[in-house]
Amino acid sequence: MPPVISGHNVNVWYNGLHALKDASLEIAERQITAFIGASGSGKSTLLRCLNRMLDTIPTARATGEIFYRGQNVFAPDMDVMALRRRVGMVFQNPTPFPKSIYDNIAYGLELQGYVNRRRIGLLRRQPIDPQAMAASTDRLDRAVMQSLQDAALWDEVKDRLHKSALGLSGGQQQRLCIARSITVQPDVLLLDEPCSELDPISTRKIEDFLLALKRDYTIVIVTHNMHQARRISDETCFFHLGELIEQGPTGVVFATPRHPLTRDYLSGAFG
């Protein structure tokens, strides 16, 4: 099977600082690929290249080639919005909008023209009844409910869908953000250290969620935590000081690293 994403000699500079050096990699379909390495090793930078979120950093400049299903991501005529709909992203800090839980999940589909009949506004403030939601035939209701169920959040939030998402715990907020990303049914999901601010129990729930998502999505996760990479990923890429040192199946990279730097990092000699 051809890789979903392949990168060739990708370089990134921030204001002259060479943050990513000649990285080449392949990301396989319906697998979890983990980017590991110390801070400043370039792993988040490469992740941001994959769906052009690097564009939001004004000082960044990138060269090289990244292909997503045959399309050149860096091409000037690339439809960036369409790309991001196919290649979604979840960030380190949970970033629910200051809207209701329902409106948060619905956000991406509203962009695609779905009509939100349950918006909490100045005029309409009635709570959302979970039973009415479950019986609803509205396509946005169905999609929102499906995403929340996939994220195992439905039972936790079904009685307060109309309340602010900012009232959820950090772990719930992060699962909400992942659910929000998959509501638009992307092809690839990029996660930038999604668990670094969460407790072990919330982390565990997110890992279970990602493992379940693997059936339908290609996942790339940046993580500080090499144990997490070992637990959930199929492929591992190790980064050091802007270079992609080693890529291979997670079991192989952890058991018999080819490069001495990888071995030192995995044994805890630095990082």
Binding site: T56, R85, F91, T95, G108
Partner: peptide, 9 residues
């Protein structure tokens, strides 16, 4: 918030 919105397309 802006990043999260842009990342949703």
């Amino acid at each position: 918030y802006r990043e999260a919105s842009l990342a949703l397309g």
